[in-house]
């Protein structure tokens, strides 16, 4: 199956935007990816082996975290996995300024 790699992590896949791996479940496919490219491990998982909170893995159009079987979900060759780091942010809360803790309010 194919795993799509986001821009920041292509440095670990010889600049490939997609990698073909073998596996019968999501977990096996991700394991095959980290076996092939060991540097991926620390970007996907915490030291305890849990998927980092800001890393989203989608099986086709479904968030793997919310699939009934999670990363044990079976996959087929024609399925795709997408690794997508989250994107969020925003300006400070009003209170942040009072404590001088907000970079965006620094004059």
């Amino acid at each position: 199956m194919k795993i799509f790699i986001p821009t920041p992590l292509r440095v670990y896949t010889e600049k490939q935007d997609a990698v073909e791996v073998a596996g019968t479940t999501v977990a096996e496919a991700l394991s095959a990816l980290t076996m092939k490219y060991p540097d991926f491990q620390k970007h996907l998982y915490t030291g305890e082996g849990k998927l980092r909170s800001f890393v989203n893995v989608y099986l086709n159009d479904e968030d793997v975290r919310y699939l009934p079987e999670g990363d044990k979900t079976p996959v087929k060759d024609q399925d795709t996995l997408s690794i997508i780091p989250s994107i969020a942010g925003g300006c400070c809360r009003t209170g942040d300024r009072a404590f001088g803790a907000c970079c965006c309010c620094r004059d």
Binding site: P6, T7, P8, F54, V55, P85, S86, I87, A88, G89, G90, C91, C92, D96, A101, C102, C103, C104, C105, R106
Partner: peptide, 13 residues
């Protein structure tokens, strides 16, 4: 300017 939230939630190196 970037805020602490912007930084904490930025992951696309």
């Amino acid at each position: 300017q970037w805020s602490p939230t912007d930084f904490a939630e930025a992951h696309w190196l």
